[in-house]
């Protein structure tokens, strides 16, 4: 069963002077209920644009191609009215990047939760109060803090409040866009563990992050994005453990972690408005060869002409 089916999704921005920015190119992935897919990559690789595309929140100069099926609804083709009335909050819950900014500063958590519950479920009157408290409880937000204002909350509680809001509509798909940026490590762990809990409750979870440790902690599968393309989709256990990533870029990212080799990938990612011919990673790649002048297709979970061997090949060798 599939909750979200993204096929050949491309996003282009038309800039002044006729310049075009290839923010996302031919991204495809599927996401089932109870499954967590982590979309990882450096900042500026196009992963946040992909999230905006799924929510219909792209600016006016953006053009999309491909499809993103949520059930039988194509999110890319849907009009704003449909998205606002039936999709955001109801079929896709958004866990935002900076929860403190996502909450209205002048209203208590309770009043914001009650408003969202009323808006999404139509519950009114005395039941509303208990419904809002139940919604808070689902995100492990303590009832004793409901009457506080966002600035009176710690980062962790603000994140839970934002998650509670995202869960109200009981959406089958949760989209978390960099949910752990700027949080301390133990807070990161707690936040993603809670997200995992919601996935275990049957939701599909798409987590967009540059925090590899957070991805490793909760993801079932990992999609690696580089220069607007998904260059590898892999099972999380194989990706973070043995035999490791197959794409040289993904290997480089993991090797840069302080827990591992702590060595950077040489050079910097190319500009999305000025992508090189062929494989965009070739200029930084230790395995690059003449054949890399052609763009590699995503085949067998990796888009590379010279990938590292997959698990079964590795065990045979």
């Amino acid at each position: 069963m599939t909750v979200l089916d993204v096929r050949d999704l491309s996003v282009r921005f038309r800039m002044r002077g006729g310049r075009e920015i290839a923010a996302v190119t031919e991204a495809s992935f599927r996401l089932g209920p109870g499954e967590c897919l982590a979309l990882v990559g450096e900042s500026g690789c196009g992963k946040s644009v992909l999230a905006s595309a799924l929510l219909g929140l792209l600016p006016g100069n953006a053009r999309t191609e491909g499809s993103a099926l949520l059930g039988d609804l194509d999110l890319l083709a849907a009009d704003e009215r449909t998205l606002a009335r039936t999709v955001r909050g109801r079929r896709v819950g958004l866990v935002p990047q900076s929860p403190a900014a996502h909450l209205t500063p002048v209203r208590t958590v309770r009043s914001q939760l009650e408003e969202t519950v009323r808006e999404l479920t139509g519950v009114r009157g005395r039941v509303l109060r208990t419904a809002a408290e139940a919604a808070a409880e689902r995100a492990a937000f303590p009832a004793g803090h409901l009457d506080r204002y966002p600035h009176q909350l710690s980062g962790g509680l603000a994140q839970r409040a934002a998650t509670a809001l995202a869960l109200v509509g009981d959406a089958p798909l949760l989209l978390a866009d960099e949910p752990t940026t700027g949080l301390d490590r133990d807070l990161v762990d707690r936040t993603v563990d809670e997200l995992r809990r919601h996935a275990d409750a049957g939701r599909a979870l798409l987590m967009i992050t540059h925090d590899l440790a957070a991805a490793q902690r909760i993801a079932d599968r990992v999609a690696v994005m580089y220069a607007g393309r998904i260059v590898e989709v892999a099972d999380a256990t194989a990706f973070f453990g043995a035999p490791g990533p197959r794409h040289p870029y993904a290997r480089g990212l993991l090797d840069a972690l302080p827990e591992r080799a702590f060595t950077p990938i040489p050079g910097m990612p190319p500009e999305l408005g000025d992508l090189p011919e062929g494989c965009a990673f070739a200029a930084r790649c230790p395995r690059a060869a003449a054949g890399c002048r052609a763009v590699p297709d995503l085949a067998d979970g990796v888009a590379c002409h010279h990938p590292h061997p997959a698990a079964e090949e590795a065990s045979r060798a």
Partner: peptide, 9 residues
Amino acid sequence: MLDASTTAA
């Protein structure tokens, strides 16, 4: 605010 590779660099 940075990714692993830029951090290491």
